[in-house]
Each structure stands twice: as structure tokens, then as C-alpha cells.
Design a binder for these strands. Structure first.
Lengths: 186, 186
DNA sequence: AAGGCAGTGTCCGGTTTTCGGACACTGCCT
DNA sequence: AGGCAGTGTCCGAAAACCGGACACTGCCTT
């Protein structure tokens, strides 16, 4: 554990700052000063500020995958991810309103993809449509889900995750299975 | 800061364990496993378990001295030390009931000494008895105070520190000044 | 517009901190 | 009497951290 302690500290201090001020007001100097480490140590772990954001996204994607493998429930994945986001509401707001909105979108798309592909796969285990069809269907819902979340963020993350889940549930329930069955008939 | 992180962690985990189980049930292996560090790293900082206790005592003595230099009040020093002790009640209980009672006594004696010598010195600044006399008087109260605290610990640290302070205060107030004055007359 | 200033990214290197594996030794357990 | 867990110590190696310097960039000042 002690190994990656400094790396973790840098990440945490960065997110902390991102919760206070926009991305372009944060400097590497700021971070290393607050962490009481040498500036070189920062470069030992990260190339630049951008790569911290990248790492955070990567690890969050991993977390969601782990969550799905544990629960096999997209609902729980969503709540889990949403709760994490709400915790760092302002940080996400600052990423959303900076040059990194693109990265955020890619990240959401990736998360949604991971959940949806696994979810459709789970359902398809019984229906046994072709893998190709399953992928197409998953991708269809992936963008829909991503877009929904993006709107939720743009709207200030006001709605409770559970509320959105219900709404999405109405769009999912039965529909995915139905789509899979239909694609078998074609 | 990051430098001494591991050392601090070892200390904290040790105290944590000492709050759970007696000293002789704690092994170095236990600690390094819980800290997720290499056993060698332990030896990098400490010789053995005993030296952690020693270090803790040393640093606590320092803290009390700092406290006295800030406040010039033995009462506040006492409350400060007692509160720290109560926080780790069971740890102290386990030290008290192990081969390290002796070390604990020496530590208390040292703390009491530091406080009393400074306190008597402060009072003597006005009275101006000889340094020699001041030391004798301080040493007299030092053992008395130590013994009182030892009994407090043996009794399970039940009494509130403030209560004991009042009791000690009755023995101190005026008496020290009086003793100093008398020793001048001899 | 020129100079000052803060932050960046990168170079050199050096020191501190952590690790892995091995050994003999002790005490305990059964 | 033998097995087993923990200890203290040896070796060397690797990872983590640091200090100072450099050129470069963008911003702010006056």
C-alpha cells in the first residue's frame, strides 16, 4: 500500500482542488505544494494534469466493470457511478465546462458500453441471438444511455439516480429481450 | 510529509492493535501484514516492538513540553496528557499489565518531572530561591504527581482528569510558593 | 514593446526508502 | 524430536523521492 501512497495523494488533492476551482486554475505547482512533495515526484507518476483525469476515468471504468461482475445488474452499476459523481459534483462540473468535456463524454460512453454489452450478453444467454446482433443492440442502448447521463450532468445532477433508473428501466425492460428475439427471426 | 508516512503507519497500526490485544499477542509479522509492507521495512524504522513504545513515550513527552511552553499551566498539560491517555485507554492498560509497566512508570515520571520543574521554575522567578532548592521541591512533587497518575491508571482511568486536577490543585496551590519562600529563610 | 515573473517539461545526477530472498536462532506446540 | 511461526540480520537490488539547472511559454506590468 505504502508504494502508491504518493500517487494516490496527488490524485486526491487534485480532485479536491477540482471541487473548488476550474481546471485551468489548477497548477502542478499547486498540487505538489499542497502534497509537500517535490515537483519532480509529480512527473514521476504523471505526465501532466491531463493524465490524472485520464487515470481517474480509467479506474472508474474498471470499478464499474467490477461492480457489474459482482451484481450483474445495470441498475446497481448506474447508482454506484452516479453516487460517485454526485460526491464530486463540482469537480465533474469543472471538467464538463473545460476543454475536457470531450474526454468526459468518451468516458461516459465507455462506461455505458461496458455495462450495456455485459447486460445484453447476460440476457442473450437465454435467447441465444447471434453475437453480432447482441452487439448492435447493446450499442444502440449505449448511446441512448450516454446521452441521458450527459443531460443529467448538464442539468446539474439534480435528479436522484433512482429516478432516472426508473425512467431508463421503462425503456429497457422487455425491450432488449424483445429486440434480441426479433433479430433472431430476421 | 510522504517520507515518514510508513513510520507513522507502523506506529498507528501498532497502537490500534494494542487497543485490541495485549502486547505479547502482537507480532512484527502482524503489523507488517496489516500495513502491507515488507518485514524489512519495519526493521528500517524500528529495532523491535519495544522501540515503538519507546518512541511513542518520547514523542508524548515532547508534546507535553510543547504544551507547557505554550500555556505555562500544569493543569492544561495534565488534561492534555490525560485525554490522550483516555483515547488509548486499552492500549495503556495493556502496557500497564505487561513487561513494560516499568517503562510506563519511567515515562510518567519523566512527564511529571518536565511539567513540575518548569512549573516550579515559573513560580520561583518571583520568589528567587536558589535553583538547588527549586529542584528539590520540584522533585518532591514530581514523584507525588507520578504516583497519583499511576493510581489513576491502575484504577481504570475512570475519574475525569478535571476531578484529579482539582484534588492536586489543593496540594499545590500556595504550597509550592510557600516551600520556596521557607527554603530561602533556612 | 520590453522586461519580469510564474509555471512547465526535461535534463543531469544523488539519496532515501522499500523490497526479496536467504540464513541461523528461539520458543512453542503436540 | 520434529514441525512451525516469528525473529533479527546478512546480502544486494529496485523503487521512490529529491535538488538544481535549463530553455520555453504565456501572462502581466509599466
Amino acid at each position: 500500500m505504502a508504494q502508491q501512497y504518493t500517487r494516490k495523494m496527488i490524485r486526491e488533492v487534485f480532485v479536491e482542488m477540482l471541487n473548488e476551482k476550474p481546471f485551468d486554475k489548477i497548477t502542478i505547482k499547486n498540487i505538489v505544494t499542497k502534497c509537500e512533495i517535490n515537483r519532480k515526484t509529480f512527473y514521476y507518476y504523471y505526465e501532466n494534469l491531463y493524465s490524472i483525469i485520464h487515470e481517474i476515468f480509467e479506474s472508474e471504468i474498471e470499478n464499474v466493470i467490477i461492480k457489474y461482475n459482482e451484481t450483474h445488474s445495470w441498475e446497481e452499476c448506474f447508482i454506484f457511478a452516479a453516487r460517485t459523481s454526485i460526491k464530486n459534483k463540482r469537480a465533474i462540473y469543472h471538467i464538463f465546462n473545460s476543454v475536457h468535456r470531450e474526454e468526459l463524454e468518451r468516458y461516459l460512453y465507455s462506461i455505458a458500453g461496458n455495462v450495456m454489452f455485459r447486460y445484453v450478453e447476460d440476457i442473450n444467454r437465454e435467447i441465444k441471438a447471434s453475437e453480432e446482433d447482441a452487439k448492435i443492440i447493446a450499442r444502440f442502448y449505449q448511446s441512448a444511455l450516454t446521452n441521458m447521463v450527459l443531460h443529467w450532468i448538464a442539468d446539474g445532477m439534480k435528479d436522484e439516480p433512482e429516478k432516472i433508473i426508473k425512467r431508463i428501466g421503462l425503456l429497457f425492460d422487455g425491450n432488449i429481450a424483445l429486440s434480441l428475439k426479433r433479430s433472431k427471426e430476421i
